[in-house]
Simulated scan of single mutants.
Amino acid sequence: MLTRALLFLLDSIGGFFGGVLLLRFMMQAFRVSFSNPLGALVVQLSNWIVAPLRRILPGFMGFDLASLLPAYALQALLLLARVALLGGMHIGFGAPEMLVAFIAGQALLATLRLGVYLMIGALVLQAVLSWINPYSPFSQPVNQFTRPLLAPLQRIIPPLGMIDLSPLAAILLLQLILIFL
């Protein structure tokens, strides 16, 4: 019972900060402006680790490794904590190298899954904002965030009257990707 509670807390806190770090990476990769309430929130929540890492971790081909690598490392630490708390270090892993390889691979998959969930959440948020308040301060950054995924789909799927079905198609495609991850 105590182990489950501890795992819940670790997953919740680690998932939140991993999501923030990955959101910061994706916002920079998709060229989303940080001069809005959402961007300011992401920067304030992640600057404590990203700013010091930027001094030692340069960007790579325009991608901010100081945001991506901590998100990946946090997923790896969460998996390692889960294995340790559930007693998996002694069961099923012959050599420590096998455990390291397992954690590294599973952390990569967990980071990719988290990125897909962030994109699905942004698509749902975009749909809700378009119905409730299309002029919200969050509308512009969410539109910028989802544009790289929706633009190719909007060329293929024409709108039906005033209804754009490309977000629905994008969510279906992302759900399909999650099946394979």
Rank of each mutant, 00 (worst) to 15 (best):
P134C: 05
Q75K: 13
D164G: 00
T111I: 02
G87E: 00
M89Q: 14
L114G: 01
P159E: 05
I179S: 09
L85R: 04
R4E: 11
S33L: 01
S35N: 15
L79W: 00
S136A: 08
L150V: 03
E97N: 11
L153E: 11
L74Y: 00
L85K: 03
L181F: 15
L22T: 05
M119F: 09
L168V: 14
I56E: 12
E97K: 11
L6H: 00
R113K: 15
L150M: 09
L45T: 11
L79I: 09
M119P: 01
L7H: 01
F8Y: 08
F30W: 09
I91D: 14
A127C: 10
V116L: 13
L2W: 09
S136H: 08
Y135T: 12
A71V: 01
P167S: 04
M1Y: 12
R55M: 13
L78E: 05
I179R: 14
L7S: 02
A104L: 12
L10F: 10
L22F: 05
L149R: 06
I132A: 11
A101E: 09
S12G: 06
Q75M: 08
G59L: 02
A29C: 05
A107C: 03
L53M: 12
L2I: 11
V83L: 13
S12A: 15
I91T: 15
Y117A: 03
V124K: 08
L176H: 06
R31Y: 12
I120R: 01
I91L: 13
S166V: 04
L9Q: 05
A71D: 00
N36P: 09
L22K: 05
Q126A: 07
L114A: 06
G62C: 09
P158N: 08
A110I: 02
P70Q: 07
S33C: 04
R55P: 08
L178E: 10
L160A: 14
L172K: 08
G15V: 00
L150E: 01
Q75F: 01
Q154T: 04
I91R: 13
R147L: 10
N143W: 05
L114D: 02
G87L: 01
I56S: 15
G121K: 01
P152G: 04
R82V: 00
R55E: 15
V100W: 11
I132R: 10
D64E: 15
D164H: 02
F34R: 12
Q140E: 15
L53P: 13
L10R: 00
N133H: 10
L174Q: 06
M26T: 03
L41R: 03
L150H: 07
L86Q: 14
N143C: 03
L77D: 04
T111V: 02
T3Q: 12
V116Q: 01
I163C: 03
M1R: 13
G14N: 07
A122F: 09
G88P: 03
A73H: 03
I13Q: 04
I103N: 02
D11W: 05
Q175H: 10
L178M: 09
I103L: 08
G92V: 02
V128I: 14
M89D: 10
W48H: 11
L53E: 12
L173S: 06
R54L: 03
P96L: 09
R4L: 11
R147P: 08
A110R: 12
A40R: 14
A107H: 04
G94Y: 11
L181Q: 12
V20W: 00
L118H: 04
G88D: 01
P134Y: 05
S46E: 02
G18W: 00
F60S: 10
L41M: 12
F34V: 03
M26A: 11
V50F: 06
F63T: 11
N143G: 14
V124S: 05
